[in-house]
């Protein structure tokens, strides 16, 4: 089946949200209140900047993910044909995994897997 079929699904999803928001816009009450526009912070006005440079802890995992995810992508084609190629595929993937695990072990050793 071709990927054309994605088109109606995409359009429907966008339509669903757009229709919902439009309907709500027409039905819902509107009132203006400065207090209401404050971002929620337990009823106290916000202090300081919200959009500031954030902790690096989150980003290291994004980097790690990138490495491993690309490798997972490589695994899929191999997985599909694994049954046919037999021993050669097994040995090759062992080598591939060895490198992969080496990377993981290195990251583990360097405490990159611990959230800082």
């Amino acid at each position: 089946m071709s990927t054309q079929i994605l088109i109606p699904f995409f359009i429907t999803a966008v339509f669903l949200v757009a229709a919902g928001i439009t309907l709500a816009y027409m039905l819902s009450p509107k009132s203006f209140n400065l207090q209401k526009q404050e971002p929620y912070e337990c009823g106290i006005p916000t202090v300081g900047v919200t959009w500031l440079q954030f902790n690096v802890g989150y980003y290291t995992f994004a980097l790690l993910f990138l490495i491993f995810d690309v490798e997972t992508v490589f695994l899929f084609p191999w997985a599909v044909v694994m049954k046919q190629i037999g021993l050669v595929g097994l040995v090759e993937i062992l080598i591939f995994f060895f490198i992969l695990v080496l990377g993981l072990a290195y990251a583990w050793k360097k405490h990159a897997l611990v959230w800082q």
Binding site: E41, C42, G43, I44, V47, G48, V49, T50, W51, L52, Q53
Partner: peptide, 9 residues
């Protein structure tokens, strides 16, 4: 904002 703390209530 480098090194600034996030102050939360």
């Amino acid at each position: 904002t480098e090194g600034q703390d996030l102050e939360i209530n």
